[in-house]
């Protein structure tokens, strides 16, 4: 079985929909920021050397930056 995909697996410019979380220990901020199941997001950019990533939630002009450790907790399903 392939491991479930997380935001971490997205390449620049790819979009996905959030399906759930990898653990119960996801910081409350993730939820408060609106990274919730069903939300569509786009990978905007990744910084080199495993630096933080930058994503956009659909129709929201504000970007969100996450470390890869947090991004890996959020599970997704790729969108074409």
């Amino acid at each position: 079985m392939t491991p479930p995909l997380s935001i971490c697996f997205l390449r620049k410019g790819e979009s996905a929909v959030i399906t759930g979380y990898r653990s119960h220990e996801v910081p409350i901020k993730v939820y408060e920021m609106g990274l919730l199941p069903g939300v569509v997001l786009t990978m905007k950019q990744r910084l080199p050397f495993n630096g933080p990533i930058c994503i956009y939630i659909k129709d929201n002009p504000n970007a969100i930056a996450l470390r890869t450790a947090e991004a890996d907790l959020i599970l997704i399903e790729s969108l074409p």
Partner: peptide
Amino acid sequence: YKSFLILEMPT
């Protein structure tokens, strides 16, 4: 506590 960074970058 685990260290995390979740940051909003406004327009």
